[in-house]
Simulated assay, not measured.
Amino acid sequence: MSDVHAKRDVVVLDYGSGNVRSATRALEKVGANVTLTADRAAAAEADGLVVPGVGAFAACMAGLRAVRGHEVVGRRLAGGRPVLGICVGMQILFERGVEHGVEAEGMGEWPGTVEQLQAHPLPHMGWNTVEAPAGSVLFGGVEKERFYFVHSYGVRDWVMPPPERLRPPLVTTSEHDGDTFVAAVENGPLSATQFHPEKSGDAGLQLLENWVRSL
């Protein structure tokens, strides 16, 4: 991978969630200068902020709020500063999550509900293709590749209406056992993937490099 982007400073937000080390290593591999921290000032000032996440929606939101990470994300987006959510780090960007009958409030950056996939078997684990829209920056050069998923919950209905003046969000989908769900979103400075790019081999590294290049 290229080292052209070595001067891009990226913070991986460390708020007690998993997959932080693998995300850090993958971003370093594509040339970013990566810091793993919960420090709000560092997270606010970096060129890019990555919000990882594994496990339960409610637990991730609780961890994020404990370090006031939701405030950092909101301030960055208000200023047009890039943020990338990964796996549950994507899910908590939506309005709410429902797991085992328990509803939890998300960050509400996008309308929609994270719910159990209507598919078998669960979790959806392994490599899968995606349907990326034309003009995608994240999937440039890897539109036909497979990415690594491990989840039982997702956003099955994208309900955000297109804005009147701004470019509408680019929504990438995937399918498991006939159930279609949101696999990625690109919405101005805010991007997210349901799959794990840091565990998706060369295709995932290319996607992360595409994101770093866009910073």
Rank of each mutant, 00 (worst) to 15 (best):
G63K: 00
E45D: 14
V12N: 06
H100P: 00
G106T: 10
N33L: 14
I92K: 00
K29I: 05
P121W: 09
F149L: 10
R40P: 07
E164F: 03
S136G: 12
E105K: 12
P163H: 12
A132C: 11
E99W: 11
R40I: 05
E99V: 12
E99H: 13
A62D: 14
Y153N: 09
G204T: 11
F94Y: 10
D47F: 00
T193Y: 00
S2E: 09
N187K: 07
W110P: 13
S17P: 00
P52A: 06
E105Y: 06
E71Y: 01
V67S: 03
A6R: 15
E175Y: 02
W110T: 14
L27W: 06
V67M: 01
V185H: 00
L77N: 09
R68Y: 03
H151F: 04
F139W: 15
W211R: 04
H70W: 01
R68C: 00
G126I: 06
H151K: 04
A132E: 11
L138C: 07
P133I: 15
G140I: 08
L36F: 13
V83Q: 00
A119K: 02
N128H: 13
D3P: 03
A132P: 12
C87F: 02
T129W: 12
V12I: 01
N33H: 15
K144S: 11
V98Y: 07
K144T: 13
V137L: 13
R68M: 03
G31Y: 11
D39I: 08
F139E: 11
N187L: 00
A26M: 01
R25E: 05
S152K: 10
T129F: 08
T24W: 02
V102S: 08
E103L: 06
V72R: 05
I86L: 07
E103V: 10
E143K: 09
T180F: 07
V150H: 02
H124T: 11
F149C: 10
V137M: 08
E115Q: 13
L27S: 09
V73A: 00
R167M: 12
F147C: 02
V155W: 10
W127T: 12
A6M: 06
G201C: 04
F149H: 11
V73L: 05
W127G: 09
P123Q: 08
A184P: 08
Q91H: 05
A104S: 11
V50W: 08
T24G: 00
A134Q: 14
W127E: 12
G101F: 07
V4W: 13
H120P: 02
F195Q: 04
L64N: 01
K7I: 05
V30L: 11
G154H: 06
H151D: 04
H196D: 08
V137T: 13
G85V: 05
G80V: 03
T24H: 02
